[in-house]
């Protein structure tokens, strides 16, 4: 498996650390209700198809990236820097 780091280009999966669904980019606002926090902390979708995950280019450039991939076909569809996705 190879991931397209927006800074380094296509690199081997072993250079990356996997941090799961990119939910951390959608942190509830201050004052959000308990239901929103409950969903943020505990609930995850388990999609068959396109999903967005956070990966850390740990032994590469050190960037956090959001990778879009397909859980059914295993195709890697693209990646953007997390700092840009969070804007």
């Amino acid at each position: 498996m190879r991931l397209p780091c927006p800074i380094c280009g296509e690199r081997d999966r072993r250079e990356f650390y996997y941090a799961g669904h990119a939910v951390a980019l959608e942190r509830p606002q201050e004052g959000a209700g308990a239901e929103a926090w409950d969903y943020y902390v505990h609930n995850r979708d388990n999609p068959c198809g396109e999903t967005r995950d956070l990966w850390f280019h740990e032994s590469g450039c050190g960037a956090w990236i959001v990778v879009t991939r397909d859980t059914a076909s295993h195709a890697v569809l693209g990646a953007v820097l997390a700092e840009e996705a969070a804007r």
């Binding site: 380094c8 690199r11 072993r14 250079e15 032994s59 590469g60 450039c61 050190g62």
Partner: peptide
């Protein structure tokens, strides 16, 4: 140049 791993070392 690349930052990568070399035998599991950050390099």
């Amino acid at each position: 140049t690349a930052r990568t791993e070399l035998g599991h070392m950050a390099a």
